[in-house]
Amino acid sequence: MDSTILTTVIMLGLLAATLAVILYIVAQKFKVVEDERIGETESILPGANCGGCGYTGCRAFAEALVKADDISAMFCPVGGNTTMTKIAEYLDKLVETKDSEIAVVRCLGSCENRPRVNEFDGAASCAVMAATYSGDTDCSYGCLGKGDCVSVCNFGAIRINSETLLPEVDEDKCTACGACVKSCPKLIIELRKKGPKSRRIYVSCINKDKGAVARKVCKTACIGCAACRKACAFESIEIENFLAYIDPNKCRLCRKCVEVCPTGSIVELNFPPRKPKVEPQEPKANVVNTETVTN
């Protein structure tokens, strides 16, 4: 009895010792020498693995950050300036601060503004739909509403409004990683400067048809009438192919363009309500849409 226990203990002990030696040798032999800064940098990064930086994940980005001499062109949209400054301090490299950005959906073609003229019955994917035909409205530029942007968002920051059938961005959750921008086959979503106090103004339409054509298919289409360009005192608005574009770097958020837009395709977000004016000229559609987009 005693000897049995003894033999067992010795045998197991020997086995354990042998295995330990083997393990040690293997560990030494296959040791990967790695820059410890990579791990540290990775731990500073938010760990969302969204790919917004252009790398496959936070790890790959950390490696790139450590390796590169000049990291000024690299940016983590999720962590923003805070994270980048921390990384800069840690790696002792220079970074450029960037204005924080947010995704904006440049289409106001809700069911009411832009009637549906046919019914799509294929796979529920904007990409499939866009490859099949021009879309379920007469506007061949507008949002298809199948939610490819929703399914690619890692942060749950975008969702389709069941009434307007348009995507809405949740300001608090959006990290401007740009996944939705890439997923949209109609190129409707744009990353824009978030603006002071999240206040921003943009043209919420990308229809490049002539004014009359665009107006016919959607009540809130930009018709390229140039009223906004005339109203703008800072030359921040350009019109190309019957479509206005507000340069976020030049715009001073005076809101004059919003007031003059005849179709209400310019959207203002997060502004305090206007003082009542003598002649309230604000287009009706705009109010509704501002609210829905602001959410």
Binding site: A123, S125, V128
Partner: peptide
């Protein structure tokens, strides 16, 4: 929608 996605 097999072929829809395969085509894509």
């Amino acid at each position: 929608p097999l072929v829809d996605y395969i085509r894509l």
